[in-house]
Design a protein around this nucleic acid. Structure first.
Ligand SMILES: NC(=O)c1ccc[n+]([C@@H]2O[C@H](COP(=O)([O-])OP(=O)(O)OC[C@H]3O[C@@H](n4cnc5c(N)ncnc54)[C@H](O)[C@@H]3O)[C@@H](O)[C@H]2O)c1
Ligand SMILES: NC(=O)c1ccc[n+]([C@@H]2O[C@H](COP(=O)([O-])OP(=O)(O)OC[C@H]3O[C@@H](n4cnc5c(N)ncnc54)[C@H](O)[C@@H]3O)[C@@H](O)[C@H]2O)c1
Lengths: 211, 211
DNA sequence: CGCCGCTTGTGAAATCCTTCACAAGTTAGG
DNA sequence: CCTAACTTGTGAAGGATTTCACAAGCGGCG
């Protein structure tokens, strides 16, 4: 039942989970694929197919038990536990991310901050002291860091990625606008603002010329 | 020749454009689909197919003239001109974005900042005075704003989106973790950090259980 | 208990996207 | 001018994902 899962399915699973958390708050017990589809900008069939990749969690005639399904989704997405994260690059985007509460409330706990700026090294963000990059490998390894958020300038990103991999981390969220070269077993998610804007301007331009 | 274009094609086009800009700097005159594929983490056939959606820009036996192709890509992506952008929400993520230089250097010019915090209204970021949300519609319309970057809390996002649309804007880059409901002709790109992290933890979890 | 209305899970069909494979241009060189 | 070496542009094939459509399970009610 669990073969190769489309990336788009995973993104939708995240959506479903958020919808379920909203529903949980509002007291309902069950939800149908129809309702979930409505909130997720997709179709009921798609919801059922997405879920069917991982098993069958619903009851015919009734729908899905909200609590049960959200627990199951958390398990599938791997967010039924706390992930230890290191932030590399304590600049503008790094500080916005560090203070973003959704971060921690979703189970991503920042346990280390690393920056190369001598003016920042040694200072504290909340309880966390900012470290220089020299002892990156041992620091990450000792703390058991699994995820790295890379928010350094593009020219430093490849090196920091390689050193993080050497420290044994398991995945990278990369904000630098370059394609990182890392071993195949280390997943990388890229966040690229300029690309998002270009997708927008394309869509707008297209729209004007083709009604 | 230009039918419905896959979203993935557009993302790759952005990549090609960045690669071409690198190549431009390094003096070469032409580039092959092979070379472009190498840099873009894709295949030569994919590059040619992507481009063929929009016409034929290469010379057989030779490849693509770098300058010409990058100009053409800029045209296709709609970045051969300056887009006027408004930033709504001058908080942590808003300020990181405002100071991000890639922004302006790629033709996205911030011409207005809007925030509801009385302590921020009236203050300046660089040359730009922060406005309150009261006169949002007239402000955006007068300035001819086409793109909005929405960086307000989730609960305020839908309202700000609707008012921006009423002001005549043409697209939204949305950082709030909700699905905006806007007219079909207004494209929205969502940036959702938590979803990216969940994709990572899924990939990692999966990897462990299925070698 | 049996029927009804509802909703899931899932093969099969349809659609969308990528890869293949090759005819046809292009340049260089003899 | 002819051939060799390259490289594009593109139908057709192949693969992946989405949509369709319906059998089958479930709860409620008479
Ligand atoms: N600011 C944004 O809105 C934004 C948006 C999208 C992407 N990005 C990307 O995110 C990255 C960071 O952007 P920023 O705006 O926060 O830049 P920034 O200059 O504000 O911060 C970068 C930080 O990284 C530190 N640094 C530099 N080299 C380092 C190294 N080798 N090891 C550890 N730390 C190092 C610097 O000291 C600085 O504190 C860049 O790649 C940028 O392109 C930024
Ligand atoms: N901080 C991050 O790293 C991060 C990452 C991803 C997404 N986000 C999302 O981006 C949005 C902003 O996050 P943030 O961390 O910058 O929050 P923030 O609280 O630092 O900033 C939000 C700003 O919006 C202003 N605001 C509130 N209501 C407004 C309204 N109606 N009109 C105009 N301005 C209004 C506030 O005064 C504040 O300045 C949120 O939706 C958040 O979920 C943040």
């Amino acid at each position: 039942m669990t073969r190769r899962i489309p990336a788009s399915t995973i993104r939708r699973l995240s959506h479903y989970l958020r919808s379920l958390e909203d529903l949980e708050a509002s007291g309902d017990e069950t939800v149908s694929s129809e309702e979930l589809a409505l909130r997720g900008q997709t179709t009921a069939a798609q919801v059922r197919k997405d879920l069917s990749h991982f098993g069958s969690f619903g009851k015919r005639g009734l729908g899905y038990r909200i609590e049960e399904l959200s627990a199951r989704l958390r398990q599938i997405l791997g967010v039924d536990r706390v992930w230890k994260v290191a932030l590399i690059g304590a600049g503008r985007i790094g500080s916005a991310l560090f203070e973003y509460p959704a971060f921690e409330s979703r189970g991503y706990e920042c346990v280390a901050i690393i920056d190369s700026d001598p003016a920042k090294i040694g200072t504290y963000w909340s309880e966390l002291q900012i470290h220089g990059p020299d002892d990156l490998e041992s620091l990450l390894a000792e703390l058991g860091v699994e995820l790295v958020i890379l928010a350094v300038p593009a020219r430093a990103a490849q090196e920091m990625a390689e050193r993080s991999v050497r420290a044994g981390i398991k995945g990278i969220l990369n904000f630098a606008p370059i394609r990182l070269k890392v071993p195949r077993h280390v997943p990388v998610e890229d966040v690229n603002l300029v690309m998002e804007l270009e997708a927008l301007s394309f869509a707008i331009t297209q729209h004007g010329s083709e009604p």
